[in-house]
């Protein structure tokens, strides 16, 4: 497993690209931040509505923001992959060793996984269909609120642990 991950995570071409083009890393950082903003503006806004903020908004309309949140998540994933696979451009370690030795990066991955499982729970429990019909002023079911609160907590956790990553390098 270790050999597989060590090989799979090693992308010399990405590291060489990042080392050669000095604008690549700051570009990735900026797009990562734009991704965070879209994620909170899309998914975070949906969570807030389920929790009762701006309750006069029908949930079906707020759902139109989700593609923006997903776009933000994709931006963060793509740029995040660049940071991990191109890490050799900044530190003299392999991506595998960085992941293995950095508890904050590990926590970030755990929280991304938890956010994913939480999303799965939203669909498995049928809450996604239950909230679809929530019109202006309607309250979300307690379980949907709990899932929304967990979603916000996990995504803010992802951001928090992401900011701690340099501490572990």
């Amino acid at each position: 497993m270790e050999t597989f991950l060590r090989t799979w995570l090693e992308w010399p071409s990405v590291a060489a690209f990042v080392a050669k083009y000095t604008w690549a890393w700051p570009l990735g950082e900026t797009l990562h931040f734009f991704g965070i903003i879209l994620l909170i503006g899309g998914i975070g806004m949906f969570d807030l509505r389920l929790l009762g903020v701006a309750r006069q908004l029908p949930v079906s309309a707020v759902k139109r923001l989700l593609p923006w949140g997903i776009t933000g998540f994709i931006l963060c994933i793509v740029t995040g992959l660049m940071f991990v696979t191109g890490v050799r451009a900044n530190v003299p370690s392999s991506p595998y060793d960085v992941i293995k030795s950095n508890p904050w990066l590990q926590m970030k991955f755990v929280f991304i996984a938890l956010a994913g499982l939480n999303l799965l729970a939203f669909y498995v429990t049928g809450m996604n269909r239950r909230v679809d019909d929530l019109g202006p002023g309607a309250n979300a079911p307690v379980l949907a609120k709990a899932i929304a609160a967990a979603s916000l907590f996990f995504w803010l956790g992802v951001i928090y642990f992401g900011r701690l990553i340099p501490e572990g390098l």
């Binding site: 879209l38 707020v62 923001l65």
Partner: peptide
């Protein structure tokens, strides 16, 4: 970063509605 995400993210939602990108939002 939290402050930035909520400040820019949520004011951005209002801006998207104002600009007519998401006209379904009241």
């Amino acid at each position: 970063t939290f402050g930035m995400a909520f400040l820019v993210g949520l004011s951005g939602v209002i801006a998207l509605r104002v600009l007519g990108v998401i006209p379904e939002l009241p």
